[in-house]
Amino acid sequence: MKHPNFVLWLMAILVYAFLYIPLIVVVVYSFNDSRLNAEWVGFTLDWYGKLFRNEEMLIAARNSLIIAVSASVLATTLGTMAGLAIHRYRLKVLPILAFTPVAMPEILLGVSLLLFFLQVLNMTLGLVSVIIAHTTFSIGFVAIVVRARLQGMDESIFEAARDLGATPWQTFRLVTLPLIMPAIIAGALMSFTLSIDDFVITFFTKGVGEPILPIQIYTMIKIAVTPEVNAVSTLLMLLTLALVMLATRFDKTILHGR
């Protein structure tokens, strides 16, 4: 099967077109000199200018960055620990706790956290609640990437390190950590992207009065669709594009799905 047949190629090209045309349309219309996203009128950068003068949008971008950075630091730390622990020890509870949030429909996590924050912690929803929520579902993703990396490794190096008299901490710092570093970085970038992108869980756990990017976009889509949405979208695409490129450079395992 060195030359896959023509039908296969044709279908593949159609699927690639299906994947990319919508995004191209969004990008192209972000330069369209018309309030309506209907026909092409002329080239403009106005929507970008408008965007950068939109203070609420800038605050939202800042809030989203704060959330994404905090959540990915937390999730990477906890997720790496979880990935190591799950790989190394026969744990029963931790894998369930870490992987279920990944497999559940997001709305369930959103709803249960909303109820928990309000009833048990009696806290005011805001950035903190969103950070916690994002961390909760990102831990599983990081753990998966880290564990996958560990699974592909030869156990004997750890034994060798121990035999040479390294303490567990030394083994960890000098052998394990460097070896899994690409996975950790990939996990960090992944949880960052997941957090910046997440709409459903953010929707349930956000407070009012602190704009967050996906929620702003949702409101813009629902209330007033102008090419400003396209402009935000294009910029966000560039950001995630850069992050994904980085992530794939560090760890090829994320290319193989979760």
Partner: peptide
């Protein structure tokens, strides 16, 4: 190098 890169990314984000 990867640790440095890792640090750089967070710095950039910061």
């Amino acid at each position: 190098r990867s640790i440095i890169l890792y640090g750089l990314i967070w710095l950039l984000l910061g």
